[in-house]
């Protein structure tokens, strides 16, 4: 197996006030993947990113970026990483062009107006290049932060809640951009609490809560493994209530009594489907269609975080 581009081992962080933000997190990120870190507010996502990027000191553990320890060989490690922070922090009085060019310089790269121009065009910022940042809308500022991170051609891009407070159109644009970046070989780690975003974008999903990485799974695998399924029975004749004979099956009536919904664990030894269908015909209920539905990542996530409490 190829060496992971980012390897986090035993990472922990306790703040001065005693708050344990991270509890021995282990995580390997594969080259070229999109990894989504999903977790509620205060779960430790931003702390994790801050330590990897060098903004916060770890209390324990190591971070290795493409073979370079991020403390001892910070230059080699950091020069590969681009960070788009969660907060819209910008130099209000600078122009878009100046601030993006500045970022490139900070990362030790020679000026390259052609690259900056490409980045700005890709982010639909080209016609704003001479605007001062304080004149821009929140969505535009978000783009500028992305442009700053891309200005120095990172191999790994951290997007900390990239679409928080961003309208639908821009969100779609960003997703397209992220895919394009991945195509060019950039590894992307994004944090989000929008489950739809993780579902839409990620190859793998890690769930983090109370400073612990609960698991990291291939997205499809995760949804298959943890997903409960629903069997939807479309009845020929609507019902007013679930018949007594079927009460113990945990059925729900919906669509004005026209369908019965049966929720089951897709991985259980016995799903109970056969028994249900037998019970249906015994009760004399006739149905015209059967359908199964996979639960969304959102349901999975809510279940997990609830269990973890």
């Amino acid at each position: 197996m190829p060496q992971p581009i980012l390897s986090i081992a035993g990472l922990s962080k306790t703040y001065d006030d005693g708050f344990e933000a991270l509890k021995s997190v282990d995580l390997d990120v594969e080259r070229g993947e999109i990894l989504a870190l999903l977790g509620p507010n205060g779960a430790g996502k931003t702390t994790l990113i801050s330590i990897v990027c060098g903004i916060t000191n770890a209390t324990g553990g190591t971070v290795t970026v493409d073979g370079h320890d991020n403390v001892r060989e910070y230059r080699a490690a950091r020069s590969q990483i681009g960070l788009v922070p969660q907060e819209l922090t910008t130099d209000a009085f600078e122009t878009v062009w100046a601030t993006v060019s500045h970022s490139r310089g900070l990362f030790g790269l020679k000026p390259n107006p052609a690259h900056i121009e490409k980045v700005l065009r890709d982010l639909s910022l080209w016609d704003k290049k001479d605007n001062r940042l304080r004149e821009l809308s929140g969505g535009m500022k978000r783009r500028v932060l992305i442009a700053k991170a891309l200005s120095h051609e990172p191999r790994i891009l951290f997007l900390d809640e990239p679409t928080a407070g961003v309208d639908v159109e821009l969100r779609k644009e960003m997703w397209a951009l992220v895919r394009e970046l991945r195509q060019s070989g950039v590894t992307i780690i994004l944090t989000t609490h929008y489950i739809a975003e993780a579902e839409e974008m990620a190859d793998r999903i890690g769930v983090i809560n109370h400073g612990q990485l609960l698991f990291v799974e291939d997205k499809g695998e995760l949804m298959r493994k943890l997903g409960s399924k629903q069997l939807i029975v479309q009845l020929q004749e609507p019902l007013e209530a679930v018949p007594d004979a079927l009460a113990k099956q945990g059925l729900e009536l919906s669509e004005g009594g026209g369908t019965l919904v049966y929720t089951y664990d897709a991985h259980a030894e016995r799903t109970g489907i056969a028994a249900l269908l037998a019970a249906l015909s015994e009760a004399g209920l006739r149905y015209k269609d059967l359908q199964t539905r996979q639960s969304s990542l959102e349901d999975i996530f809510v279940n997990l975080v609830r269990e973890d409490k």
Binding site: C53, G54, A77, R78, L83, L106, F107
Partner: peptide, 11 residues
């Protein structure tokens, strides 16, 4: 302003 994040994360 918080822009120091960039300085701290730069090589």
């Amino acid at each position: 302003t918080g822009t120091i994040y960039e300085l701290l994360s730069a090589p």
